[in-house]
Design a protein around this nucleic acid. Structure first.
Lengths: 217, 217
DNA sequence: TTTTTAAATAAACGGCATTTAATAAAACAT
DNA sequence: ATGTTTTATTAAATGCCGTTTATTTAAAAA
């Protein structure tokens, strides 16, 4: 058949993204296929390639949407917290929560790497950067340090929270994972912030931690 | 052709593992295929299924070997460090180093999850646990805390270091990634250990951090 | 020497992503 | 109203893939 004109290109794109998200949410990336997405929206495979260059592009778009949702959740988490320390805890808890609630989509963000070089990688870079900035803002309110060090610390701490979510989710049943991850996240954030607050000339110590703590060159 | 008897079953298994490792090391998991492994060792696909139940099993075996290598590297890292704090830094540095040197094989450990339920998951569990114990040992030498808390803290800190390696490696060129990861790992370990040392009645604080720091229930 | 056994293969199956050529409906021009 | 051009859509083809099956053949056993 030819043009039905039932849905616009943009509508098909949206339908495909939603269908794919549902499949991934339920069965994970392994359960996804172009054919499955197409039939879920009542079209044939070919039509997908009329809207997306390839599956990689579709996945990239899905990751973009997931990152948007994640950001919204994190924004929400920092709206009802009073003190910056409390806010960092809340951010960690919200992140772990999101990861355990949508494990497949969350993992896809980090595990999918497109084969085409292109600018594909860069596309969602800002959406990730935004999240780091949420943490930086809180750290700035906790300790007075040069911007450079705030950026470094936010990355270190947030990557840490991410690692907890990642390792906990790898092989654990839903509820168990969520509980364990929360406990670990709290432990990490708590000790890290204490350490950050305690260290007076932090930048000096961080840069010379090797000598100070007898770190091997 | 029929039985050549040129290689024993065990020899073929070993050859296949090595060939697969090379492919993954160079091209990543995406570049691996049963046919490619088979032809690399001068056999046809069918022979692989005479030795492994399926590709999942082969990958599981590879991950086991990678975990063994990683453990060896970490053991090595703690042999030439004098003080426990220094040892934790050394462990983190060695981990980050291994991850950046073998990104594809390292990622495979965490990203490959077999479809067969089986006990497959459990197979490498000990090899992961062993690593946490290395960290626990050092933490025990740093602070006097109940075992339960040591275990929790080792997991939190180590997952944190893992997260740094993971996030840094996702999209960064080799050298850049390695340098950045080292810096972040140092920052995280440094502040975390300071915090752990500073907190006197840590178990009390960790368990009641919610109230203490006004953490949202 | 014949029979059995087991190693190894070739070929097949169904599925996949992606590309190609064919088709038919709409939009446009006359 | 008619013919022509677009363009949305599909069916089919290509070349991979993991896995299974039946078949061949060399060695071991009889």
């Amino acid at each position: 058949m030819g043009r039905r004109g039932e849905h616009s290109k943009l509508e098909i794109e949206c339908m495909a993204l939603e269908a794919a998200e549902t499949i991934i949410e339920n069965e994970g990336y392994a359960g996804l296929s172009a054919r499955k997405v197409a039939s879920a929206i009542g079209y044939t495979v070919g039509s997908l390639y009329f809207v997306f260059r390839n599956l990689d592009e579709l996945l990239l778009r899905i990751n973009g949407r997931t990152l948007d949702q994640l950001y919204a959740v994190l924004i929400d988490a920092v709206t009802d917290c009073r003190f910056p320390q409390q806010c960092v805890f809340a951010l960690g808890a919200a992140y772990v929560d999101f990861a355990t609630r949508h494990p497949h989509r969350w993992r896809l963000i980090f595990e999918h790497q497109p084969r085409d070089e292109d600018l594909s990688t860069e596309i969602n870079k800002e959406k990730v950067e935004r999240i780091y900035e949420l943490v930086e803002k809180q750290l700035k309110a906790i300790v007075a340090r040069p911007d450079e060090e705030i950026v470094l610390s936010a990355r270190a701490l947030w990557n840490g929270v991410h690692g907890i979510a990642a390792m906990t989710l790898i092989r654990n049943p839903y509820d168990e994972a969520a509980q364990s991850a929360h406990q670990l996240s709290m432990n990490l954030v708590s000790h890290y912030l204490t350490g950050l607050n305690t260290t007076d000339f932090s930048s000096a110590i961080t840069q010379t931690a090797g000598q100070a703590l007898d770190y091997p060159k």
